[in-house]
């Protein structure tokens, strides 16, 4: 049996707020409430990275949040997708280039779907999640690394070592 097609039938969500104003977060919760009812797609908000498939990130990623975001990302088992919800999560939004933010989620972890809006509307969040499901179906089970985190050829690192390597890079501030 092809197990891949069941990925999009039961995506479980982890929702993480990286310093957002809570506007997008309220919209995400609205999606789960009776009016939009995301559960009809089998979507559950697990609140636990180890059992989740979709990471919904809001907020511009403050300096304090970047390490947490990376750790949560590494605790999620592959295949997984990341959805950046809201203008701040996509680009940094009104906070872009401020001293305390990292200009969007994709500067820390690879992002698959960007959902714009300030705050993003529930309809567009649902649209984004459904788009993410299509990507999820095609994903492989290899560990996905952020672009700034290079592993030299021939070196075999386990998950914990990879996380530490990436943490080293983002804490040193050297990223292209």
């Amino acid at each position: 049996m092809e197990l891949k097609k069941f990925r999009k039938k039961s995506p479980w969500i982890l929702h993480y707020n990286t310093g957002s104003c809570n506007g997008c977060d309220i919209e995400i919760l609205a999606c789960l409430a009776p009016k939009y009812d995301l559960e009809r797609f089998g979507i559950l908000n697990r609140g636990n990275p180890k059992q989740s498939d979709i990471l919904l990130v809001t907020g511009p990623v403050t300096k304090r949040a970047k390490e947490r975001l990376l750790r949560l990302y590494f605790e999620m088992p592959e295949p997984k997708v990341v959805v950046a919800v809201g203008a701040c999560a996509c680009t940094g939004g009104v906070f872009r280039h401020m001293y305390n933010v990292e200009n969007g989620v994709d500067s820390i972890i690879p992002v698959d779907v960007y959902v714009p809006g300030c705050a993003a509307r529930p309809e567009s969040i649902i649209d984004g999640v459904v788009k993410a499901l299509e990507i999820l179906e095609k994903k492989k089970k290899e560990i996905e690394l952020p672009p700034y985190c290079k592993v030299p050829e021939g070196e075999k690192l386990n998950r914990r070592k990879l996380l530490e390597r990436c943490l080293e890079v983002i804490n040193a501030g050297r990223r292209s």
């Binding site: 993480y16 390490e67 947490r68 605790e75 386990n158 998950r159 914990r160």
Partner: peptide
């Protein structure tokens, strides 16, 4: 199988 740390909300 991969090893990870315990879930502590991303905090170290």
């Amino acid at each position: 199988v991969d090893r990870v740390y315990e879930y502590t909300c991303g905090e170290r």
